[in-house]
Amino acid sequence: MRSEQEVNKAIERYADTVRRLCMIYLKNETDTEDIFQTVFLKYVVSSVSFENEEHEKAWLIRVTINACKDVLKRFFRSHTISLNELMEQPEILEPDHTEVLEAVLSLPLKYKDVVYLHYYEGYTAPQISRILRKNVNTVYTLLTRSRQLLKEKLGGDGLE
């Protein structure tokens, strides 16, 4: 079991990552709070010995994605967060990015994690396949399709 100091450090280091994943997957604040507690509680009680920070981060990402999917399954929540709800939190977004975020949030669930991991975290397809425990070819396919969907939504201007 990890100490309170260790978990506090992890919260400081990975809270933004967990928050972004929650935003992509979940609709409301209560669920986000639940996910934060679930993910970091798992971190506290986990006996996994991390080789380095990258390993630790990948573990937390996987746990967060799984926790979000569990919440969605359990409560039959909407798969997307509406932009209006995001806009109700003015400190979160600058107006320039609303269109892009809306496009990302409107993607079907199966594309969201690969889009986040590839476009934001910068993971390659083989790395994503290890984190999500998916076939690498499946990841390539999901990335290609999600890119097409995003281009369609964003008009394709200056995206290459």
Binding site: D16, R19, R20, I92, V100, V104, Y119, L150, L159
Partner: peptide, 12 residues
Amino acid sequence: KIHQALQQIHAE
């Protein structure tokens, strides 16, 4: 674009 948009999101 995606990176910058998501970069705006922080844990409160």
